[in-house]
Design a protein around this nucleic acid. Structure first.
Lengths: 209, 209
DNA sequence: GGTCATCGTGAACAGTGTTTAATTATTGAC
DNA sequence: GTCAATAATTAAACACTGTTCACGATGACC
């Protein structure tokens, strides 16, 4: 059995090498500029070899997508669960934006790219995404309970919060910031988020359901 | 000269035919499933012929992008400029979302796709986008003046507003709605936007700069 | 040593955007 | 009407893309 084990180990190691190399190429040359051929060349193999480790390019991207969500969730877990709800909400958005700007290629895969969607729909593999989304929802619920947000429509409120940060990040990542000089998009995003959070913090709603 | 004029007219007519056919194919088969070959086949020409009317695929897409912004701006102009600022802000977001959902392929071109960015950066052709953005900014400014939003940081506030609706729309268009069954994303977006606007409408800030 | 499965290769297929030489069609002048 | 110039269109190619598959090599087990 020791030999079969080694083969298995080498397989997963090879998969890891492929993922790491792909991620490295993505960050240095952009997601859409990395082909299977270039990736194969980078690990000094033939393109065909890749397909015995990942059935698809989509499946490889999906694997990175999963790693990305793990990374994002780890970032979420740095938020002190004992801090006040509104402070947690603020930090939650901040970590999200931080993740987006530090890992733009990964962010693209996770929230913008359409290439991995077939796989997600096929095997209903939303677990990764749902976990981070649930994290946000819980915070929003706590904010409602604490009277910082009007009660009711928890799902809508959570989605609004997500929309705000995703919209802000993705517009910058896709270069849709006509107002801002160039590469100054981050500052505008921070300013927008700050504006929104300060508005929230300055109000306190005590509305019933 | 009458002949040269006719030639010119036929040229622009051909360009229009190309754009219309492209738009039709996009809406029926999705942006990324339409190649220059298929487009050429649809207008019963050879692929190469397209390149004497548009130098690039990017330039063709950019032409559609311009048309899209004209359409969006026309929609903005249906908003009554004499209605209260907050009502205008509400309508502004609603028309934006309406546009996104009624023209998903066009929306993709205008706010998500990266293929047209080279052209925009090259000739600094932000006029179209800036006009619709200025429209929003003016409304936000009026809302600040009327005390519905805290004063100061006009740019950040405008961008936050845009981020909210763009984020909400693009997450649905890219299929990132794990919570929602399928094709029900519009309802979630409407719910989120409604939540946000109601929160805004229930508060009135009278803060100084 | 012989058998067998796994792994990697190289070549191919179908598709993409794009260019270019050659061909066709159309125009304007005589 | 004929002929030269000009414009429009084509066919073929180039360099890519993701992907598949028969073949050969390599190592593991008996």
């Amino acid at each position: 059995m020791t030999s079969a084990e080694r083969r298995q180990r080498e397989r997963t190691e090879m998969q890891a090498l492929i993922r790491e190399t792909a991620m490295r190429l993505f960050t240095s040359e952009g997601v859409e500029n990395v082909s299977m051929r270039r990736l194969a060349e980078a690990i000094e193999y033939t393109p065909g070899a890749l397909y015995s480790y990942y059935k698809d390019k989509a499946e490889l991207l999906y694997a990175l997508h999963v790693e990305g969500f793990a990374k994002l969730h780890a970032l979420q877990l740095t938020i002190d669960p004992k801090s006040p709800p509104l402070a947690r909400l603020r930090r939650c958005g901040e970590t999200y934006l931080q993740f987006a700007f530090e890992n733009p290629q990964l962010y693209e895969l996770m929230f913008i790219s359409r290439s991995i969607m077939p796989i997600i729909e096929e095997q209903c593999a939303w677990d990764q995404g749902l976990r981070t989304y649930d994290f946000l929802r819980t915070i929003v619920r706590d904010c409602m309970a604490a009277g910082h947000l009007p009660n009711g429509e928890l799902e809508g409120a959570t989605y609004a919060m997500w929309s705000l940060v995703h919209g802000a990040a993705s517009l910058v990542l896709r270069g849709r910031c006509p107002v801002i000089p160039e590469g100054q998009g981050h500052a505008l995003v921070r300013q927008a988020y700050e504006f929104f959070m300060r508005f929230l913090e300055s109000k306190t709603t005590v509305g019933p359901s």
